[in-house]
């Protein structure tokens, strides 16, 4: 198997609540894999389980042939897996530049300065705000910072939790381009969680759909784009007749 990351029967709990109900998935090296799902499907939990912020109760996670499911997050990060967490989680009292440098905390090589320039190249606004304390950034600027910070790790695998959250349409395009570029030029593998399914399916190679802690669909992104369910629920494409009916709470009842 050439999968860079492989999840087998992962089950994760929050106390008594079973959030992930036995999922298996593969992230092949050099690909962009997207993970879709409604609110509360458990996407964030999957990423947290991979990055070591949570431990699964059962199942294995293999990264480059090595089991990582019980490791601490710092160990996982050292292996080259960078996590852009939900809700940004920037260090509010550090400056923008220090935040970025924190991303390179585990690196020993001398190229941190070069990567800093690279990140500033992607997000020029961050360079303007380099000395500002991160808590004063606008929501979208914090999001850019979180992505930039993950890049500073020079990751081989990036776990992106809703990177487009709170970004203006123009920047959503830019982020999508950056993801593709990193993937093509530096062959960074991506696991992308998105509510913006259109963007995710456009740039992704492989897609998984989650519902209530389970994977209910997996296919190439191209085929997912054409599946009717996906179009209706995730791409918001439906004819007006359907819409009129749904006005009266004709919603998925099996939620």
């Amino acid at each position: 198997m050439s999968a860079l990351l492989e999840l087998r029967n992962i089950e994760t709990y929050y106390g008594p609540i079973m959030a992930i109900r036995g999922i298996s998935m593969e992230v092949p090296e050099g690909k962009i894999v997207t993970l879709l799902g409604a609110n509360g499907a458990g996407k964030t939990t999957v990423l947290k389980t991979i990055s070591g912020a949570m431990d699964p109760l059962r199942g294995t996670i293999t990264y480059r042939g090595e089991e990582i499911q019980t490791r601490d997050p710092d160990w996982v990060a050292r292996k080259g897996i960078a996590h852009v967490p939900e809700g940004r989680e920037v260090f509010p009292f550090l400056s923008v530049e220090d935040n970025l440098r924190m991303g390179a905390f585990t690196r020993k090589d001398g190229e941190i300065g070069k990567d800093l320039t690279l990140v500033y190249g992607y997000f020029p606004i961050l360079e303007e705000l380099a000395k500002t304390q991160a808590e004063y950034l606008s929501g979208g600027q914090q999001q850019m910072l979180a992505i930039g910070r993950a890049l500073m790790l020079r990751p081989q695998l990036m776990l992106l939790d809703e990177p487009s959250l709170g970004l203006a349409p123009k920047l959503v395009h830019e982020i999508a381009e950056i993801i593709v570029r990193l993937n093509k030029e530096q062959s960074v593998t991506m696991l992308l969680v998105e509510q913006n399914a259109k963007m995710a399916l456009d740039i992704g190679d492989l897609g998984y759909v989650m519902e209530m802690g389970r994977i209910v669909m997996e296919d190439s992104c191209e085929r997912l784009r054409n599946a009717t369910d996906i179009q209706e629920f995730y791409l918001g494409m439906k004819d007006e007749g359907v819409r009129g009916r749904r006005r009266w709470k004709q919603r998925k009842t099996w939620r």
């Binding site: 809703e162 399914a197 918001g236 819409r243």
Partner: peptide, 8 residues
Amino acid sequence: GLNPEETE
């Protein structure tokens, strides 16, 4: 943070 369906 909402998907298109929820946004609708």
